[in-house]
């Protein structure tokens, strides 16, 4: 009796979950496989193929951003984890602080810096350089992705690094490892779960963004997110095609995450909770 009454506590949520998580996703699939009249069709999915260049661009730019985030965040997390406990928490707060500002505002700030008459070009002008076209380029989109999502790389790697037992590193040194060997044979393998969840936490929002590409990439660098947004709220209203694009995006992400999960247990939940 007790057992039944406690389990019933979850009942309202289970209904909520079914109606607002499961049913909407089923509707995405339903729209993806039907036409306007509701008849089954594969046309929408076939039409997605004509946007394959946008898919490739999104994957490519998101992948570059993820790699840059990793390259910047890894040494930083390592240094942070080696600091004194008190400095560590203060430094972590300073690193994370920009993330708490709305990302629209942060991206808007870069528009002002990168514009043709922007701060960076004015600065370069003093040295007789430029003006360069910085805004509305793929480089600007990558910059925006790195800037916005790098905290999602730092946090999981850092939280794995601090848990590494320092005596393991000492033991490796005592047994004759030099610094390079310690890094490649001890620290790197032990920090892999953090790296794996960092990669998914950066890649997923990067591949699906439509704000960064719109604000920093101009009209010429559409990403999958822009494509989806245009089908639902833009000029080319077509929820069936939009659902098909969303469906393909989910399948791609599912594949990538399955591959990433092969490398280390999925720490995503814990890291999110840490924030």
């Amino acid at each position: 009796m007790k057992g039944i009454s406690s389990k019933a506590a979850a009942a309202p949520y289970l209904i909520w979950m079914a109606v607002f998580i499961v049913v909407p996703l089923i509707m995405v699939a339903y729209f993806a496989f039907t036409d306007e009249s509701g008849a089954f069709t594969l046309d929408n999915l076939a039409n997605v193929a004509q946007y394959s260049n946008i898919f490739i661009r999104s994957i490519w730019l998101a992948a570059i951003s993820t790699v840059i985030c990793l390259v910047i965040a890894y040494p930083l997390s390592y240094m942070l984890s080696g600091m004194k406990a008190h400095t560590q928490s203060t430094m972590l707060m300073i690193v994370m602080l920009p993330m708490w500002m709305n990302f629209l505002l942060r991206t808007y700030a870069w528009m002002a810096i990168l514009g043709n008459n922007g701060l960076l070009n004015t600065l370069l002008g003093f040295f007789g350089l430029g003006p360069y076209k910085l805004l509305n380029t793929q480089g600007a989109v990558v910059l925006g992705m790195v800037y916005n999502y790098i905290p999602f790389m730092i946090l999981p790697i850092y939280s794995v690094m601090v848990k590494i037992d320092k005596s393991v590193i000492e033991a490796a040194r005592d047994l004759g490892c030099n610094s390079v060997n310690v890094l490649f044979r001890v620290i790197l393998p032990l920090s892999f779960p953090g790296v794996a969840s960092g990669i998914t936490m950066v890649f997923v929002p990067a591949i699906s963004t439509f704000i960064i590409s719109r604000m920093l990439g101009g009209g010429g660098n559409l990403l999958v997110g822009d494509l989806i947004e245009m089908q639902f709220l833009g000029n080319s209203y077509n929820p069936n095609l939009g659902a098909a694009i969303s469906f393909v995006l989910m399948v791609i992400l599912l594949l990538i995450m399955t591959i990433m999960n092969q490398f280390g247990e999925d720490d995503t939940e814990n890291d999110r909770v840490l924030m």
Binding site: I21, V28, P205, S208, A243, M257
Partner: peptide, 24 residues
């Protein structure tokens, strides 16, 4: 099963959560 479904909105891109709710 239930915890896995629960994490879907955390893992899924925001745009898909938004679009799927919009369809509903």
């Amino acid at each position: 099963i239930i915890t896995n479904i629960t994490t879907i909105p955390m893992i899924n891109p925001d745009i898909i959560t938004g679009v799927s709710l919009m369809l509903l």
